[in-house]
Nucleic acid binder design. Structure first.
Lengths: 141, 141
DNA sequence: GCAACCTGTTACTTTATAAGTAACATATTA
DNA sequence: TAATATGTTACTTATAAAGTAACAGGTTGC
């Protein structure tokens, strides 16, 4: 399949809000312009972020803000919010008549869960504020 | 896209070899039967595992073995061997005229690298032998 | 009131990547 | 030399995501 950019784009939106000042256009069209995507996709992500309480928005009105400080929103919060699938995928169709095929699904699911947990722990360590700071630092170079 | 099962299937192959005894049919057809897939896919994975030195095989002949002890092959070895893409994906098409769009790609790549490293560290901690043992334990239940 | 915008939502089309399939060159074995 | 194996290539099919369009309903300013 296509690789998913949903996490990257959701972080982009939050970073865009976090970096904005009172003069910044925060419409879905403006944000879509920054992502180089389209407003519909942005609005769908915005709606998800709003429903999961990461941002506050109002229908019909440009009124967009982070629901809490950027340093208190982690990449894990975003990852959970947009309901990305697991990072690794067990093959769900193995031959159950074979000892390996019959038991590998649960075994691999357990292993993948451990890997997932480590990844999520690192996601929890990175905040939107860090992304904002890093972008500002990169921009100065 | 479809979710990739290449890692799961490659681990399946190695586990199948690791669990086999002298009576086990180790042909690509037999292994494909266990995965419930097709021999061509198995042979492609086998060729990759062979080229990267995880298994020894011989063209024209059923002669398949792990190149070293199952406890010395980690999930990370397999992951690297089959050249799975990164777990998370930066959006490569952002608006470079915007401060966020221009700098978020490198920033996110750095963040994703950290997450990847944690995941890979956990992969390194899990061996094929552990998968084999777990399957045998599950089977006893 | 109403025109012009916005968000939120749905449905549909296009695109990218992986799985599935088939075919064949080459090696081995009986 | 016939049968069967691996290794490799090319092609088709399936699937999940991005892209696009449309519209319902809220908000604002004239």
């Amino acid at each position: 399949m296509k690789y998913s950019h949903r996490l990257s784009d959701a972080i982009h939106i939050l970073t865009y809000i976090g970096i904005s000042d009172s003069n910044t256009d925060l419409s879905s069209r403006a944000i879509a312009g920054s992502i180089d995507s389209n407003p519909s996709l942005v609005r769908r992500l915005m709606a998800t972020l709003s429903n999961t309480g990461l941002i506050n928005s109002t229908p019909g009105k440009i009124s967009l803000e982070l629901s809490r400080s950027a340093k208190d929103i982690s990449l894990l919060d975003v990852y959970k919010a947009i309901e990305e699938p697991q990072l690794l995928h067990v093959d769900p169709k193995t031959n159950l008549k074979c000892i390996v095929g019959a038991n590998i699904q649960k075994t691999l699911a357990d292993a993948y869960d451990k890997i997932q947990q480590q990844a999520e722990q690192e996601m929890a360590n990175i905040s939107i504020q860090e992304i904002v700071d890093s972008i500002l630092a990169e921009n100065k170079k």
